[in-house]
Design a protein around this nucleic acid. Structure first.
Length: 272
DNA sequence: ACTATCCCCTGACGGC
DNA sequence: TGCCGTCAGGGGATAG
């Protein structure tokens, strides 16, 4: 499932390859992936030039000339690929964005069809506000995170997964971060002291940056714009390792439901 | 304002 | 082999 590192990796790859390209036309094969609707989306971006890409949390923004922009969210199984303009697409490809000058196209694939491409009404800041997105996980300060934790009665796992609290963390990285920090996913977020939140913030940054360096985590579907898989799955310490020995103490990793998500942790290393 | 639950959707997987 | 039920999950909607 694409989280911040995967979206960042995608943004970096695409930036190098599509900036300055002009959108010639759009082919939509499954209208529900596009908001507000396929015609509206196509009419707005056709003929526009891709000026810049921006990421906030798990959203990737395409900024076009004329103050036109759209947002992409890959959800669970979304993929954005840059391929030759004449390449055939399969039944999971829902949108093709044909580029004018480079004989290539951006294609959106999504097996589960959860992802969305959404035309922005106004700027990125407005979009972030409407979606109530929190500060990006790589930008948030310890003091701010501490304040947000103080305001909730939820578990740390639920708080970290909540995109309104901190934007960019999903189920995989949340579990990895909490393990590395030795914090139980069931612990109340408000019980963390400021220095513990400061340490947690450093671990959030370290894990995310390491994952970006390794070009993301490929568990099932994630690939970058060139179809390349990431390698951070080799560095996972708890996620999807139920029953296997903890790398630190040897105790079997457990899986339990926390905040409605399958959650992996070491019962010994993450006791509080 | 909070939590719990359902929904979307398909492929993987277990049981028979 | 094949059929069927269950599970996975980000975020939006809805109910309590």
């Amino acid at each position: 499932m694409p989280e911040l590192p995967e979206v960042e990796n995608l943004a970096r790859g695409l930036t190098a390859r599509i900036l300055g390209a002009t959108i010639m036309d759009i082919r939509c094969h499954f209208p529900a992936v596009v908001r507000p609707d396929a015609d509206c989306f196509a009419d707005a971006i056709r003929g526009r030039t891709i000026d810049k890409l921006r990421r906030h949390g798990k959203y990737l923004f395409f900024l076009l000339d004329g103050d036109v922009a759209f947002a992409l969210h890959l959800r669970m199984t979304g993929q954005l690929l840059l391929v030759p303009g004449d390449q055939r697409v399969d039944r999971h490809t829902h949108l093709e964005i044909l580029l004018a000058d480079r004989k290539s196209k951006i294609v959106y694939r999504d097996v589960r069809k959860f992802g969305r491409l959404e035309l922005l009404n106004s700027g990125v800041e407005q979009f972030v506000q409407v979606k109530k997105l929190g500060i990006d996980a790589l930008s948030i300060s310890a003091g701010h995170l501490f304040e947000l934790f103080q305001k909730t009665s939820r578990t740390i796992k639920a708080a970290l997964l909540d995109q309104r609290v901190i934007a960019g963390l999903g189920n995989i990285y949340t579990d990895e971060i909490l393990f590395r920090e030795g914090i139980s996913p069931l612990r109340k977020a408000a019980s963390l002291k400021l220095e513990q939140v400061a340490s947690l913030r450093l671990t959030i940054r370290a894990v995310l940056r390491s994952a970006v360096r390794r070009k993301g985590t490929t568990i099932s579907d994630y690939v970058d714009d060139q179809g390349q898989e990431g390698s951070f799955q080799k560095a996972l310490l708890v996620y999807s390792r139920a029953g296997e020995p903890c790398r630190r103490c040897g105790t079997p990793i457990i899986k339990q439901q926390v905040a409605g998500r399958g959650t992996y942790s070491c019962p010994l290393c993450q006791r509080a």
